[in-house]
Design a protein around this nucleic acid. Sequence first.
DNA 1: TCACGTCAAGCAGAT
DNA 2: ATCTGCTTGACGTGA
Length: 300
Amino acid sequence: MKIGYPSLNWTIGCNGAKTFHLKSYSHEKLIETVENNLNCLLTMLKFNVKNNLLFFRITSRLIPFASHPVMDFDWKGYFKENFNEISDFINENNIRISMHPGQFVVVNSKDEEVFERSLNELRYHSHVFDLLKLDSTAKIQVHVGGVYADKEKSMERFIGRYNGLNKAIKRRLVIENDEKSYNLSECLKISEKTEIPVIFDYFHHELNNNSRELHVCFEKFTKTWKAEDGLPMVDYSSQKEGKSRGTHIESIDLDHFKKFLKDTEDFDFDIMLEIKDKETSALKAADILKYDKRFIHKEL
DNA sequence: TCACGTCAAGCAGAT
DNA sequence: ATCTGCTTGACGTGA
């Protein structure tokens, strides 16, 4: 079991998710931004390793406009050395990596152009993993997509599109249950037909499920991960009080988290904390996890 | 220096 | 019809 947080670190002093507006696109702007993002990524990873946070979600903003038609710069070649350095650090320290493309990636879209754009975005994510020399335990997580008033057909469309993807993407793609459209059992159904691993989002599951025991859920989704996929991944969060349903909490509720660990003690998996204050909560969670037999860390 | 309108991209549910 | 939330708030113009 490893634990981590997504995308950015509020206290470290750099912002690794810088971007710019399309109309200010230029090679200079791109180089400056990507250089910043890659340097900051390595800084965050070093901070994480020091603090026993061995799971990290890399921001999709790493290379702004990477999948946009405007992109005419060989960023893969230009930043090869930067990627190599980060790759070495990740592999030396056994850091688990994931990415989560934005809501615009809709594999099952009814609109062929939306699918094409989604595919380009997935290619970009896959290229980042290639440059970091990551194996198939590094995952790109997406939601199933839209319902379009016909869930059966939309699930079939996902399966068809998934089956047509090339291997470089397929070996890394996983689906995640969401809070309104596709719950865990629906993701599992898709997994049965495609063998795609299912990421379990605990918070989304609380908001959208057909009331199965948590233990049963874990038994089911963990089985969708094969040896080459690595340990199953779980997204963890909880509801922010007084905000609309689905809003992530600002800072980790440690009692809630402890109960979650207790309820899942029979399983091993990696945890991504989707909590607004990022590393602050991750450090608190790692502190608690030091007393958990499953936790991979340096010193006690 | 800072407020604030806007930003590549999709979808569903609430208001 | 418009707003909100999600991957992740950040950019950048205007005052």
